[in-house]
Design a protein around this nucleic acid. Structure first.
Lengths: 336, 336
DNA sequence: CGGCCGGATTTGACCGGTCAAATCACGGAG
DNA sequence: CTCCGTGATTTGACCGGTCAAATCCGGCCG
């Protein structure tokens, strides 16, 4: 089914059909109806490839699945939201893989050289992500889920991120409001790089200091249940153990919960526990896990919105920081 | 950078350049060298869109992210492997979303009508998946991760699946060999549909019967930690509790582990526990979780291999059943 | 020395759209 | 009545490749 067949059927020229679809205001209403009917009865859909060739737009956004993406329970949900958002803009998401770091850049370059994609959405951004300056230099459009944390200056490119600092600070405030004076934190040892983990920790620490609460922190050696359980054990073994524990991810929180239960303590009563991400684990534990929900759909929508936006003249990076939403469940029955 | 520019640079016609890339045997070696050098120095890469238009091949495989895909910790790993496998065949994966069931079929149809994809890889297949007959009828190429379980007859289309039945039977055999006489099973209530869950259960039950072991089964009301913990509690509260528990997924196994620990019992000593999937949870628990690893990379490779294969003349469905691999960790220290 | 053959290379048409410029039709102004 | 302007529609060229048929060219044979 091609444009010309529709045109023949409707008794007009191919361009008129094209206009009906792309610039209806140029076409006489009566003609429009006739063409629309032909389109309808023939079940015509324009060929994406041909359109892409002519307009020089692939209609595809590239997204790289990093080796680590499976390590966060959250990325799956994000990918789903991103796919939906891309579809809403009439395009599609093209998935690819690339080695980490500098070596992976060639893959991005190839996709652009082949005009296989129009732009990229990055995620799993790391400390000084090499992709940002590299793509920006070459004038390739992209947006990034997650800030970069350059040691000095600023990375180019626009990003969207969730304010883990504010969310964790808020958790502390509300836990404190609920009567907790010793609020611990369980994070994981990020390998030297700043990132979401330290952002969340800083939020917790910042508010604890503000409120004059003690510094009760333990780190898991990895983002694992076992590591979290050990970290929690360290905290709970202290002479003055915390009565609430803020964990940097849901997975860690579940590990903490396990340790709490093993000691015969009751989560949400003896020890309150919170997580981060609102992943499937959060509704999977007994009485549910109080956690911070990332506004996934909005993140995805914003990332695409920024892609359309004219790249800032001064291409200094600019970003959008979205608030996380505290979801109260049984593990920390915060009021209000 | 276009074909003609390269041709001009090398002093040949466009078609010669095209031949160097697609049918080198037709080109004089000396000319080949000259053209290759031109390609090299100009950094030419053929335009995917143009090639697609001419060859009528999008070079894209469609994959639908179902609403539920996030519910299995495993699908993330699968998606990664699939992406890599598709790349290995010189194509790319196009992601999309669609409503479940019949209503989603229109989305598949649109992608084909627009010639946006060459074929589909399906996953999250359900009992009598409507997609299989529908796609087959229309002559659309696809392969499916996961069998369909038609009530009668056979669904068309080719599939790849992991033999959960055999793997669970093997687990029972080895647990029995390690001295266990009461081996329980924790699955989840699949909503009436046959699927991977019941396949695994059947394997467990089959071997238990064969060995004359008692039927100790409890179902979680959902694939959740809490449900699994309750199911495990039921089993462990019985007058003759199991000494080993086979769980239908890693997540369920972790739930079981939690209940075991809470009772002061030691996993891998007092009660042995196994999971299924070898997801990130399996290495995340203390001493690790003995589980069944799906041959993810091979699954992906086979799915693509079947796509190339000529659709069987008698388009009765045909499939590949791959063995799962038992990975021994601390929760069930099986010898051998 | 002309004809023929086969490999190497080039030419023309096409894939299915879009863009820009050209043509057409019609009504109002001069 | 002619000319012009405007809106509607059509035509020709092009996007960047591939396919198939045509051309070129050197060597071999008669």
């Amino acid at each position: 089914m091609t444009l010309r067949q529709v045109a023949a059927h409707a008794g007009v020229s191919r361009q008129t059909v094209s206009n009906v679809l792309n610039a209806p205001e140029r076409v006489d209403p009566a003609t429009q109806d006739r063409v629309r009917e032909a389109i309808e009865t023939l079940g015509y859909q324009p060929n994406r490839t041909a359109r892409s060739l002519a307009t020089r737009q692939a209609g595809l956004i590239g997204y790289c699945l990093s080796r680590h993406s499976g390590h966060s329970l959250y990325m799956d949900a994000f990918l789903h939201a991103l796919t939906a958002a891309v579809e809403a803009s009439g395009r599609h998401l093209l998935l690819f893989t690339a080695p980490d770091g500098e070596r992976g850049l060639a893959t991005y370059a190839d996709l652009i050289a082949q005009q296989a994609v129009d732009a990229f959405v990055l995620s799993d951004t790391v400390g000084e992500d090499p992709r940002h300056p590299w793509l920006a230099e070459r004038g390739i459009r992209f947006t990034s889920f997650g800030r970069t944390w350059p040691r000095h200056g600023r990375q180019p490119g626009m990003w969207v991120d969730v304010d883990g600092h504010a969310a964790c600070a808020e958790l502390v405030t509300r836990l404190h409001g609920a009567g907790h004076d010793r609020i611990g934190f369980v994070g994981w040892d990020s390998p030297g790089t700043r990132g979401a983990g330290s952002d969340r920790r800083d939020g917790w620490r910042f508010r604890c200091r503000e409120l004059g609460l003690p510094h009760l922190e333990a780190r898991a050696d990895s983002d694992s249940l076992e590591g979290a359980a050990r970290a929690a054990a360290t905290l709970l073994d202290a002479p003055e153990p915390p009565t609430a524990i803020v964990a940097a991810t849901d997975l860690l929180a579940v590990g903490v919960l396990g340790e709490v239960r093993r000691r015969g303590l009751s989560p949400g009563a003896d020890v309150w526990v919170t997580g981060f991400d609102d992943s499937l684990l959060a509704t999977s534990v007994e009485n549910g896990l109080t956690t911070v929900r990332q506004p996934t759909a909005e993140i995805a929508a914003r990332l695409l919105g920024l892609l359309e936006a004219e790249p800032d003249t001064a291409d200094a990076g600019a970003g959008v920081l979205l608030p996380g939403q505290i979801v109260v469940r049984g593990s920390a029955p915060l009021g209000l």
